[in-house]
């Protein structure tokens, strides 16, 4: 399942226009501690977080994440979106809580795998 397909299925608001959404999503990681994300998240995963400052873009770049899904209606500022656009890191915003968002992503990826 691509990031675009996942974003459409889960009705995410695409905050970072211009990023490549035609990448395969290999899983998800949920958490708000940056070093824990660096240590645990795997390349190709979607990062579910409520952190929405500029440093999350670098974490996603360094870790090789497919994109960032901001939970609980959190939205990145224009400055963060601009940095993400320059870096080619997709950022989405969802009204769902991190818990619900993780469940939906898990369900979507499992459904496709069947």
């Amino acid at each position: 399942m691509t990031l675009q397909e996942l974003a459409t299925a889960l009705e995410w608001d695409v905050q970072c226009v211009g990023a490549d959404l035609d990448v395969a999503v290999l899983g998800g990681y949920c958490g708000d501690l940056l070093s824990h994300a660096l240590a645990t998240a795997k390349p190709g995963e979607v990062w579910i977080t409520i952190q929405h400052h500029a440093n999350i873009v670098a974490v996603a770049q360094v870790t090789g994440l497919a994109g960032i899904a901001l939970a609980g209606g959190v939205r990145a500022t224009d400055a963060v979106v601009e940095r993400a656009r320059e870096a080619g890191v997709p950022i989405f915003s969802s009204a769902d809580s991190a818990f619900i968002l993780a469940a939906k992503i898990h369900h979507a990826l499992r459904s496709e795998a069947r």
Binding site: L33, L34, S35, A39, Q51, N55
Partner: peptide
């Protein structure tokens, strides 16, 4: 408050 300070910085470098 920004998500730093997990106490994993140096361990991540080492790992």
């Amino acid at each position: 408050e920004l998500g730093f300070g997990a106490g994993m910085g140096l361990p991540n470098m080492q790992r």
